[in-house]
Amino acid sequence: MSVLVFLENWDGKFKKLSFELVSYASKVAEMLGQPAIALSIGKVDASELEKLAAYGAEKVINIENDSIKAFDEQVYTSMIAEVAQKTGANILVLANNNSGKALAPRLSVRLKAGIASGVSRLPVSINPFVVYKKVYSGKAFANVAIKTEIKIITLAQNSFEVVESSKTFVVEKMNIQPDGKLMKTQVKEVQKQSGKILITDADIVVSGGRGMKSPDNWGPLVELADLLGAATACSRPVSDEGWRSHDEHTGQTGKIIAPNLYFAIGISGATQHLAGVSSSKFIVAINTDKDAPIFEAAQYGIVGDASKVLPKLVEAVKEIKSK
């Protein structure tokens, strides 16, 4: 029996999300008295694989295969299912991002395994197996029992702290030949944004709404974000107006994020916006309307105009940075 955690890589590298996943899997494994095994598919340097040991993986299985030219959901499902069977996995952990959302449900059918997605804590109990997850876009939570022998969990990003716990560690190269007939996805073109901090990865997100009044007013907001090493985001009306790119839209139908700190600047805090950001650990609200619902969700607030408040914040950050 094992807890198997699937890790994607980004150009051969892991990131904080990967370490959150391994930390989570290894804690679940500890609860069950089983080993945590990490599975990585694709070309990843040995030094990257070794990083996983620091978070409690006892074994890393690496499948490298030149015939896998694209992320094909059927091909990956087949490979992960085969590894799950070989390692006797009774718990599978994946990320609750687009790749995890692609693979977990297919694996659920393949392995006849119940699934709980967007889980943000360790299991509430092992027998019965109950996990705690967000429902109604953060307006409530549910305790969900998974009744099958094999269980699948997708972990919400930024919800579980990375925990260092070194274990003796082995890397095993596994040779699994994917079924060529399944390979139906052909990637024609990849468009990457470089140099930008991803909103979903960022510890701090600085977000602007209609209260910014014009796309020309974003300068100080971007400066604040740059000084804090933060990502920039926006509310839906702002992206709909074309003031900012759609990639920046956070909210129910946009990006759903859980940073340590979220600045909502000129954002009133409609339910749909809060659905995307309510898992933030701290929310700062800056709004001219003292009755705006965003202040109910926020821990810190300034009632004031963004154009006057932002330059003061920029100055204050410069000051603490200079110390």
Binding site: K112, V144, K147
Partner: peptide
């Protein structure tokens, strides 16, 4: 079904906003 909701919980109320 393979899973079952045991019960729902409301989020913990957040501390009141501190104004500056």
């Amino acid at each position: 079904s393979l899973t079952e909701v045991i019960n729902y919980e409301m989020p913990k109320p957040r501390a009141a906003c501190k104004y500056v």
